[in-house]
Design a binder for these strands. Structure first.
Lengths: 194, 194, 194, 194
DNA sequence: TATGAATGAGAATTCATTCAT
DNA sequence: TATGAATGAATTCTCATTCAT
C-alpha cells in the first residue's frame, strides 16, 4: 500500500536523521534503513529535504496543539490551572518521548559533529550552574523562595534566549527596556495576582 | 602580523556565515570576503569548522560571562536586583547587537533554506499568539497580573523548551513531575519571597 | 488487438517526442499520453529507442517514396516535368504536415534545450540573410535572373551542407574540386539543356 | 596559463564528443582525455553543455564568415564568380577538415547510437541513388545537361530539406506553391541570366 | 607566508527496465 | 495482457583540502 511504504520511509528517516543529523545522513542511508532501493525514495518524496520538513512540521504542530489545548473549555479558575498543569506535563512528555524528533525540529540535528554538540551541551550546563548559583545567592539573601535552583536556572536561560531570538526578531519588536522590565517582573513576581 | 590576518579571517567568516548560513557558505566565500587567497585560510585554521567553532565559542563565552557577573561583588539585596537588571539588559543588548552571531551559536544558521526558516518563524509566532491568548484568559479570569502577554508568552515557550531540551537531557534528569510542578510555581509565583 | 495497442503507443510517442524532444521525453510520458501503464510499453517494444526508430524510419521511407515516384511511368518530357513538380510539392507538403516528425528524423528533436535550438535557428536565419544578399548583388550586377533571393539562399545552403555532410562522407568521395565545379554549374546554369 | 588549460579542455571535448556523441560522452571522459581531474572542468566551464555550445558556435560562425566573404570588395562580375567559387571551395574544405565538428554542429553527434547513424546514412544513400536515377532519366530524355548525377542528387536533397525545415519554419513562411515554383526554376534554369 | 589551480571523494537525483501480482 | 511499484546504475556538479610555485 502506498501509505505504508511512505510511513516506512518516514520512520526510517526519523531514525537516521536522529542518529546522524540531517547533513550527515544520505538518502541512501534512509532507504537502506527502510529496506528499499534508493530510487524508491523519489517515488514518495521530491527531495531529501521533504521528509525532513514533514518530520519537523508534525512535531511543531504537536507542540502547538498542546499549547492551544489550555484554554479550550475553560470555565473556572480551577479548570484553568488544571489545564496549565496538564499542558506543561504533556509538553515535557512529548519532548522526552520524541526526543530525537525534537532535536530535529530544534535543529540540534544540524550540528556539524560531536564536538559542536559537546560544546553546546557544556555551554548550557555551565551557564545553568552559573545561574543556579545566582539563584542560590538570592535564596540565601532571603530574597527568593526556596525553588529548585537548577530547574529555575534552565527556565531563566530559556526565557531570555527565546525572547531575544524570537520576540526581538519579530517585525515590530518592543522596546528592549520594556522587555527587560517585564521579564524581570515575570521572573520575580510570577503571574499570579496577589 | 599573524594575529591580524587571523582576525581578518574571523571577521570575514562572521559576516559570511551570518549572511548565508554555515553550510551554504564556502571557504572561498570567506577568503574572498577577507581579501586573501583560498589557501591562506588553511595557514590559520585546520578546517572549515574551526572558525565557526571559534565564533560560537566566543559568543557563548560572552553570554556566560554576563550571567556570571550577577553575583560578583554583591553585598546588599539592592545590589543584587540591580545586577540582575543589568545582566538581563546586557544579555538582550548582546543578542540584538550580535544578532547574526547569536543565530550562528543557536544553529539558526544551520537551516536548509528559506522555507525551513519561515516554517520555524511561523511556528514561534503562532505558538506565541496561542500562549499570549492563554495568558489573556488568565488575566480576564482575574487570576493573573496584567503582564505583557506576548513577552510573557515568549518567556514561557523558552522556559519549557530549554528545560525540556537542556535539563531533561542531562545525565541524571530530575523527575519530570517535579519539573512540571517547579516550572508552574516559577511561572505563577515567581521567585520573590512574600 | 495487438496492433491497435501498438499503434496507440506509436501515436502517443510521436506527440511526446515532437513536443519534448527525444531525450527529454520519458517512457512514462509516452505511456501516460497513450493512457496505458508504464510496463505496457515493454510488451510492445524492447527499448525506448525502438519506437523512435520506427517513427524516423517511416518518415524517411515516405520521403524516399516520393522521390521514387518521379520516374515511374514517365513517357514524355511533359510527364517528367509534371512529376518533378508533383514530387517537389508533395515533399514540401509532407514536411509541413508532419513537421515535428520531420524534426525527429532530422534530429532537430535531439537538441539539448531551447538555447541550442535558438542558436541553430539564428544561425540559419543569419546565414540565409547573408546568402540572400549575395544573390541580390548578383542580380544587381545583371548576372542573375530575378529569383526569390531568400528561397534561393536556403536552397544553396542546403545544397552545400548536404553535399558536404552526405556525399563527401561516403565511402569513395569524389574529388572536392570536381564537386565544387559541379555545384557551381548546377547553381548557376541549372539542369535544363539549352 | 588559464587559456591554455581551457583550450586543452576544448580540444579534448571536441575529440570525445566527436567520437561518442554528446550524450554518451561524460564530463569524466573529457577530463580524462585532457589529462586533468574531473573538478577541473568546472573551473573553466559552468556546465557540460557549455563547451559543446562553444564548439558548435565557433563552427557555425566559421561557416557564416565564409558566406559573408563572397560580396566583400566585389567590383566586377569576374570578381563575383571568383569569390563564389572560392567560398564554395572553402566551405567544402571546412566541412571536410573539421568533419567531426560539423557533425556536432549538425547534431549528428546527438544520435542515439550506431544503428540510427546507419539508418540515416542508408536513407541518404538510397535517396541519393533514387534522385540520381531521376536525373539520369532527364539526361536520357535530352532534357538535362550531362551533370554529375550523384552530386546533383545530393544538392537537390539538401535544397528541399533545408527549405522545408528552415525557410518554411520561419515566422512568416512564404506560400508553399510559390516556393515549389521557385525551387524548380532554380533547379532547372539555375541562376545565370541568359 | 601567500597564492590559486588542481584534486577527487561524495551526494542528490533521474529514469529505462524489470517483475510480482 | 496489463499494471505500476521497485530497482539501481549512471551522471552531473560541489567544494573542502592540498600543494607546487
Amino acid at each position: 500500500m502506498r501509505d505504508e511504504r511512505r510511513a516506512q520511509l518516514v520512520t526510517a528517516a526519523r531514525e537516521v536523521f536522529g542518529e546522524k543529523g540531517y547533513h550527515a545522513a544520505t538518502v541512501d542511508d534512509i532507504t537502506r534503513a527502510a529496506g528499499v532501493a534508493k530510487g524508491t525514495y523519489y517515488l514518495y518524496f521530491q527531495e531529501k529535504r521533504e521528509i525532513y520538513y514533514e518530520l519537523v512540521r508534525s512535531f511543531l504542530q504537536h507542540v502547538t496543539d498542546i499549547g492551544a489545548s489550555v484554554v479550550r473549555e475553560v470555565k473556572t479558575p480551577a479548570d484553568f490551572y488544571a489545564r496549565c498543569e496538564l499542558a506543561a506535563g504533556e509538553l515535557l512528555r512529548v519532548f522526552i518521548e520524541h526526543h530525537s524528533l525534537a532535536r530535529l525540529a530544534y535543529r540540534e540535528s544540524m550540528s556539524l559533529d560531536a564536538e559542536l554538540e559537546r560544546m553546546l551541551r557544556d555551554f548550557y550546563r555551565q551557564l545553568a550552574r552559573v545561574e543556579a548559583d545566582n539563584i542560590r545567592v538570592g535564596i540565601e539573601l532571603g530574597l527568593f523562595r526556596p525553588v529548585d535552583p537548577l530547574i529555575c536556572a534552565y527556565a531563566h536561560i530559556g526565557m531570555v534566549e527565546r525572547v531575544a531570538l524570537g520576540l526581538l526578531a519579530e517585525r515590530d519588536p518592543p522596546d528592549p527596556r520594556h522587555v527587560v522590565r517585564e521579564l524581570l517582573a515575570i521572573a520575580f513576581e510570577g503571574l499570579r495576582k496577589k
